[in-house]
Design a protein around this nucleic acid. Structure first.
Lengths: 203, 203
DNA sequence: GTCTATATTGTGATAGAC
DNA sequence: GTCTATCACAATATAGAC
């Protein structure tokens, strides 16, 4: 078992991710990334040639992480309500570990939408098959009529907004009480799932 | 009735709002704002002295518009379900007219959170009084137990995410079919209200 | 591979004529 | 008030020594 030191490239990628996630492409500075990595600017360009390419090196992974992992859960054999609970629970856990991810993705989605559409198309994700599963539940009278698109938009919106709006929720609603904010997020793991389950009138 | 020509200051503010809303503070360029206003950069500085001050001149109004107008509706005498319908309907209508507003506010909320907390505190908005109204409904057994904070976070999240995620929804889910996207948004005016009403099990 | 120094371009801001 | 010209500095990127 070797105490492997992180390669320079990995250190740069870590630093870049941290700065880009916080500041966005437009707000990030190569100098800040270099400082964060404990190296100088020239070395960034030696490894990644340009700010654009360095950004690309971290974006795809971040974006894929942002998409909730529904396919694994959807094909499993548990009741629909349990699927909702599992997806919401895992998604909020991921967001707790990556709280800047939503704002980051949203910012870049506005800056370079075409690039990101191309990226998501490349993944082979198939919303039509997801929709068929939802429509099966509808046809069986298990849930009220709703499209997969509306459902996933509701689910993501309910999960990410507390992270997007953290400054207002923590700073204003909870008077900068971090513990109250954290408690609020933990409550949402069950609250959001129940909210969706009630809304869909799952039988 | 005079065909009043817009003052230069108003033209600048309109141009600045357009560019800042689209690109954010970091991505916006004074040159682009000048072009948009049909004037030169020097004149921008003559009127507003700095990019920061020009930004401040448009931000407060934009941010206030972003907050859903709940107080007027909440104090009225209609049933709770109708209040939800009214708030959601008006909010989505506003977002249809200002589709870039959510991303803009979110970006700046991350960039200068303290400034924005101070701004919202200045308005005298009182979440405690809103919470009391919600708790009255809970105590009367009209809705399931929920805090005002969870409720408003759910409501805003459900309303804004379709606008935040437009590139993915329109570009990917609907294969760049703008009409399909617009239809989707219009559906949400009733769908989101019903979703909340069902979730709260309003009696 | 890593550094210092420097080139090059972009961008906010000002000076001064009209 | 509005313009052209320009300054000053910030930021990306490269050259070249080690």
């Amino acid at each position: 078992m070797v105490e492997q030191e992180l390669s320079t490239e990995k250190v740069i990628l870590e630093a870049a991710k941290k700065v880009f996630l916080d500041k966005g492409f437009d707000g990030a500075r190569m100098q800040q990334i270099a400082d964060e990595a404990g190296i100088n600017k020239a070395l960034l360009h030696y490894y990644f040639r340009s700010k654009d390419k360095l950004f690309d090196a971290i974006f795809e992974g971040a974006f894929m992480q942002f998409l909730p992992n529904i396919s694994q859960v959807m094909v499993s054999d548990i009741p629909f309500a349990e699927k909702i609970r599992a997806i919401v629970g895992h998604y909020i856990d991921m967001l707790l570990e990556n709280p800047y991810l939503p704002v980051f993705v949203i910012r870049e989605l506005q800056r370079t939408p075409e690039k990101i559409i191309a990226l998501i198309k490349k993944t082979g994700i198939n919303p039509e098959s997801a929709n068929q599963m939802v429509q099966k539940e509808v046809a069986d009278g298990k849930i009220i009529p709703i499209s997969f698109t509306h459902l996933i938009v509701n689910l993501i919106g309910l999960c990410i907004f507390p992270f997007i709006g953290r400054p207002i929720i923590e700073g204003f609603m909870f008077n900068s009480d971090k513990d109250a904010y954290h408690k609020f997020i933990m409550e949402r793991k069950t609250l959001v799932a129940d909210f969706i389950i009630n809304a869909l009138q799952i039988k």
